[in-house]
Nucleic acid binder design. Sequence first.
DNA 1: AAGTCACTCAACCGCTACTTT
DNA 2: TAAAGTAGCGGTTGAGTGACT
Length: 334
Amino acid sequence: MVRPPCCDKEGVKKGPWTPEEDIILVSYIQEHGPGNWKAVPTNTGLLRCSKSCRLRWTNYLRPGIKRGNFTDQEEKMIIHLQALLGNRWAAIAAYLPQRTDNDIKNYWNTYLKKKLKRLETSTSSESCLGHDNFSVSQPIARGQWERRLQTNIDMAKKALSDALSPQKSTSSNNLLLPLESNICSESSFCSTKPTQTQTQSLCYASSADNIARLLKGWMKNKPKGSNGNYSNVTQNSFNIDLAYGGNYETSASSEGMEKGSSTNVEISETFESLFGYESLDSSNSDSTNLFQDESKPEIIGDGEIMPFSLLEKWLLDDGGIQEKVGLSEINYVF
DNA sequence: AAGTCACTCAACCGCTACTTT
DNA sequence: TAAAGTAGCGGTTGAGTGACT
């Protein structure tokens, strides 16, 4: 099979995305929905390959993405899911609301892997379980917890296959895994797949949250050598000055940077008008609700996860076996 | 203050899987 | 059915940044 030359083309831009490019991409997706990535560069005038556009959207601009530190619970889930599923980051990401596979992969590679190795070294030298957050609350005989772990893994696998079997998909809603709901929705953005035009326009607005976040960051970290070329974008682009209420200076002066914090309100207002919803605050439930049926498990309120599957319960059950199992004993795939 | 090192994470690359023709 | 086109995934890279000397 011949490899598509999309990324090898001359004139295809690489490297970090500019806010203008983000805005162009978001506004396009807002109008047309994600998918058909091949058409995105052509229709938007973005000098990016389709893959780059897709990646930018799924890993950064997509609504509902949570950034920053991983919680203990998320960390535990990653560890156990990694042990269970291996390096299938997309599958693991399906269980972690608001996290991207790229994020999880990075977190694993840069932090968790080392942490587990450290733990493994220390536990093997001390030949006892139980340090760190994953300590054993009660000592369990090795054979015993191994059997229990295996049982749980088997149960999880069974639940997984049950949930994925088409016949049971309607009758076993309680077992519905995020994995299942996401497999079909990744490209369609909404889990049920109505015609794209039906849902797209109402679904994408909160991308502005990410954009706003990005712009805030950009205001803070305006590239030193950014020769002001950001205004040199296609005819389809937004005027970045518009986004900052005309107060933004394209030069990377220190005054310009300081304006960053003071223009947040303006940014919010601008996006409010641009994307037609009230707040950019990610805690705003309205904007969150808009995207509940996005490709991540459903979220209620403050990030509480909607009914867990058996597997999820198993993964999260603090009283469950995994808490009692020394991490070094699980077969991690490094 | 300058240089070096270690770390993070956004983005790219290459591959496979899936879909369309 | 095969070939071509496209989307998605996981591994890897490299720019940016902070800590340390």
